[in-house]
Nucleic acid binder design. Structure first.
Lengths: 250, 250
DNA sequence: GCAGTTAGCATAACGCTGTTATGTTAAAAA
DNA sequence: TTTTTAACATAACAGCGTTATGCTAACTGC
């Protein structure tokens, strides 16, 4: 009754089931939020039973974990479109803008990535977190360039990258939680954070401000670069993925 | 069968049931995390039925909301122990340290306050968030003093307060999510954030650094001031209730 | 080509959850 | 005293994640 209507129902390694489940789960999460992520709902929309979730992911936790990896993949996708220029400060500011744009574009996905537990008893493993941290290695490299160019005062590049990460993550979280009331320009806070991060020594405030402004212009191109081929690298056959909604520029 | 063993079971407005439910829920949340927050579990431990949750809170959402208010009350309790000194920068840094300490002391509670949805379909109302923002009004006032004392460059005090809030919230969230790996000195990030927040213009770096160091010493006294009827520790005997209940205001 | 194994999935059930309809009862109101 | 009311118990319902069982098509060895 619940079985697929037309297809011949192969018994071994149906190559369509797993990506379909991931796809439907991602769509449900984006459209209706974490509450819609139930094994029965996903299985029904995929035309199979809940067992498909267990054979493919070992349970709901595995599927939620897949969502987390999907989220980091999307972030990585944005990061890969940030080019290295002669202005490393503008580059690192652009990383921050891209991070924020990705989070605001995929709010529920972002919540699952960093929302801690509370979702069907799911919790990240150390390996999951390491996967997430790896995404930021590009930013650390950029921070090193900032120090080398003497735009940041000499110090730990990883510290600077983490400072940027925590600041923007906090901003994005409170934005998504609607704690920043209207009319409140979250973008002003963002730019102030970037500026505060950058002017480590003395009188280079104006130069830093120019870099921040420059990164704002460059963000559009990054977004446009990511948009066409959104998230994953599914074999492009019968992918069901929605073309990903756009979001206001930061 | 499930009713209380000894008490006379008054039918109208039992003054013990509601605080007992709040108390047990807070303890379960602190000890076992959000997963332990179930109506049946709470009611059983209170010696009543699940209906008590509905008559007193209108459902699980109402009880979770009560936890959020409890969380902000605890934060307010810490903030009330931050005194005004002649060094407003050290004061505002101390607000940040107190905020972080409170969050790390009540991790599950903090997660419920800012974890967004995902917990039994609970979501904050606009009024709830306003209650949370009110807690930060003290910090905004302190930021104003920093500007008046010309320790921050002239600008929007609310912007500065929100910058501090978002930065520390992000740090705390990633700390609780264990995204900051060991050995990683989250305290260094915290101090770098504070420093970056403060040195708005030129050559006052050393002075700012002194203020930050001063706030670190003062934190201990704040914690000790809050501790007497504190947060988590119900060490003595088998008391189940921390007193605590602060009054809000619009 | 055939037999045995295996893995993907359907079916159905278990225990759990939040929630609700109904009944009971004691306190407040008349 | 009588009526009303609200707090709570009981029991049920729908939905959840999960699991045991069985079927069957695909793979494997011959």
């Amino acid at each position: 009754m619940l079985c697929n209507t037309v297809k011949v129902s192969p018994r071994r390694s149906n190559p369509q089931t797993r990506p379909a489940l991931v796809d439907i789960a991602a769509r449900l999460l984006a459209d209706e939020g974490p509450q819609a992520l139930s094994a029965r709902r996903i299985a029904t929309e995929a035309g199979s039973s809940t067992m498909a979730v267990y054979t493919n992911f070992g349970g709901m936790s595995g599927l939620v974990r897949e969502m987390v990896y999907e989220g980091f993949a999307r972030l990585q996708d944005y990061f890969s479109h940030v080019s290295r220029t002669a202005d490393p400060v503008a580059d690192i500011a652009l990383f921050g803008r891209a991070y924020r744009h990705n989070a605001l574009t995929n709010p529920h996905l972002y919540a699952v990535m960093f929302g801690g537990a509370s979702l069907a008893g799911f919790s990240l493993t150390a390996e999951d977190r390491q996967y997430g941290r790896y995404t930021l290695s590009t930013v650390v490299e950029c921070a090193t360039r900032c120090i080398t160019a003497e735009r940041f005062r000499a110090g730990d590049a990883e510290l600077v990258a983490h400072q940027l990460w925590t600041a923007i993550h906090g901003l994005v979280t409170l934005e998504l939680g609607e704690y920043l009331i209207e009319p409140f320009d979250a973008d002003r806070v963002f730019e102030a954070q970037l500026t505060g991060l950058m002017i480590g020594a003395g009188d280079i405030l104006e130069e830093a401000t120019r870099s921040v402004a420059s990164s704002k212009r460059r963000l559009r191109k990054v977004i446009e670069g990511v948009r066409p081929d959104p998230v994953d690298d599914r074999p492009a056959g019968d992918r069901r993925r929605r073309p990903r909604q756009a979001a206001p520029a930061g």
